[in-house]
Amino acid sequence: MESQTAVTESQSGATESRGGVAAAREGVAAVRDGAVDPRTGVAALSPRYQIGAALALAVVAVAVCVHIGLTFLHVAPSNTLTKQHGAVMDEWIYPEFEQNWKLFAPNPLQQNISVQVRAEVSTADGGIRTTGWYDLSAQDGRAIDGNPLPSHTQQNELRRAWDFFVATHDSDNRPVGLRGALSETYLRRIAVLRLDRNDAAGPRGVVERVQYRSRTVNVPPPEWSGERVSDRPVYRVLPWWTVPAGETVGGAA
């Protein structure tokens, strides 16, 4: 209570004696109104309204502190507080304040992961034909080469879809939870879209099943480092997936 009175009093004091606050206020009022309007700011309010202003200030101050605090804990490594209050934090952060700033950290990716796909196609004469592997990542890479404005469809679509699949499947390629199932459907639809663009089915052919594999190869270390890493590719082969009849090709086909 004492300090509150001090605040009110010293405010007028500052306005009169120092002039700094008043000048600042005038400056901003001038920005807003083009003329000095004395009737702005808390000082122009009667005590009844000042309580309202103080309340607003308190609410905003608390909200700002809580939001920044929770955001900090969200981006911080797992720690004592996040372990104890994870549920409360997630309640506030998700879905709209989710964020991840581990940009090329702790270590940048040091492998090129090529995602490749092939298809089983039923041909017009009633036979079944298996296509060769289409290296979709290499196609993305070629689209990005020399391109000052790479599209998200080239840079993110397949790359992140694959990350999503890896994150939602165990090492035996079994899906974990709802998201695992979603990621399979997503990859399958990307495959159908990209195979169609490559005209993999040929005239009057139909893609019946698709199969993905990834080919991971280390980025060769810089010459000046003297390091050596294996240049042998590692493959991860997924099972064949049946394409449901009538699954439409992506809108941009």
Partner: peptide
């Protein structure tokens, strides 16, 4: 972005910047 990088061996040995520049998706 900074504090997580400090923990990475490639940012420590001073070669980190080389790698993103040699990823197919980030080397136009």
């Amino acid at each position: 972005a900074g504090w997580y990088k400090i923990q990475g061996s490639r940012w420590q040995d001073g070669t980190a910047v080389y790698y993103p520049l040699h990823l197919d998706y980030f080397s136009p």
